[in-house]
Design a binder for these strands. Structure first.
Lengths: 184, 184
DNA sequence: AAACAGATATATCAAACTGATACATAAGGA
DNA sequence: TCCTTATGTATCAGTTTGATATATCTGTTT
């Protein structure tokens, strides 16, 4: 059975708002949805080719000067495929936290290494949270526009969970520090 | 450059506590760390073979009756590789939330579909949270044992973030419902 | 004007990972 | 005895990642 390729839906979702090139798609992914989804040229370009040889999208040459550029446009069939996916009840949500993996196996090394791992995570989350918050604030003011409600909710998910991460970091560090005296 | 294979570290981490077969490793992953990490036979077995032909683990035939069984044991070099990884400051934490993806592109369909997507997520999280909480409670009572502190902290991360998810679900549903009247 | 860095743009590849499938044995209950 | 479930290893097609290759254009510095 042909597995569902998630990048197809990301591309169709983005194209449902505007025509884009592969490069543009990468930028959109890296921008608005990067904190909960990633995409790489290595799967964007092949996906575009496949969908274009099917009926979901069409392409047009929009090269400027000597620089090649292909702009893609979603078809009616593409929009229907997107809707169908949106209506499917089955979803796969995957978390791969190397930080937690290291913490789980922390007993194999010293406590200070585990604490450092938490601090690295904390620093990263703090930095990302600043960006997410300002993005979220911007969206909150634009919520009259129908689409922005959806963008706001996803950004808001990021803010809420990142804040929960930081609280946990605090708790975890305190717990490990309190055990330090009797540690390895 | 040879990419780092994360499953290797998961396997070494598990083997640092006890000798295990490939099947056992899969069970351990599905048990204690499944909410933040996944593993499949398709990458566990090849990783075991590769590491065994290297110097990180050794194998021994522990077949019982007619049923084949290979048990793996971590070597000193394997323990050092694990420690080295634990001490590396660079980590990659990846979130792939199809639920958020669908919400982000929700404007392409009706509000009721988006609300339903949130409800499905909520139901799943609620079910998982019950298991995680009882797992977490058990670990809390065992924290005299050094290792259990680490297990508790990871489980606690799960509980804290899942609770944040549920709060967000509530907020998101209310926001979408309040806009329902003027919606599509 | 030349040199350079960085953004734009497409494309491909090896290695890693997923989810399914295949195959076989063992244990337990109906 | 039959059937289901658990144990156990293994492989495969398809998907994804992260790196690399190649080329053009733009803006800045020398």
């Amino acid at each position: 059975m042909a597995r569902e390729r998630k990048i197809d839906m990301v591309i169709l979702g983005l194209l449902s708002h505007e025509d884009l090139s592969g490069y543009d798609i990468k930028k959109r992914i890296d921008g608005a949805i990067s904190f909960f989804w990633k995409g790489s040229f290595g799967n964007i370009y092949p996906a575009l080719k496949d969908m274009e040889s099917g009926t979901l999208i069409t392409k047009s040459d929009t090269s400027v000067g000597g620089r090649e550029k292909i702009t893609y446009h979603i078809t009616k069939a593409g929009k229907e495929a997107l809707k169908k996916w949106l209506q499917e009840e089955q979803v796969s949500n995957e978390l791969k936290y190397e930080t937690l993996l290291k913490l789980f196996f922390g007993g194999a090394d010293s406590k200070s290494v585990s604490i450092r791992n938490i601090e690295i995570f904390e620093e990263q989350i703090k930095a990302d949270l600043i960006l997410l918050k300002s993005y979220c604030d911007t969206l909150e003011k634009l919520m009259d526009d129908e689409d922005h409600v959806y963008y706001y909710l996803t950004a808001s998910f990021g803010v809420d969970t990142y804040e929960a991460y930081l609280k946990w970091c605090d708790k975890a560090k305190k717990m490990l520090n309190s055990k330090e005296a009797g540690g390895v």
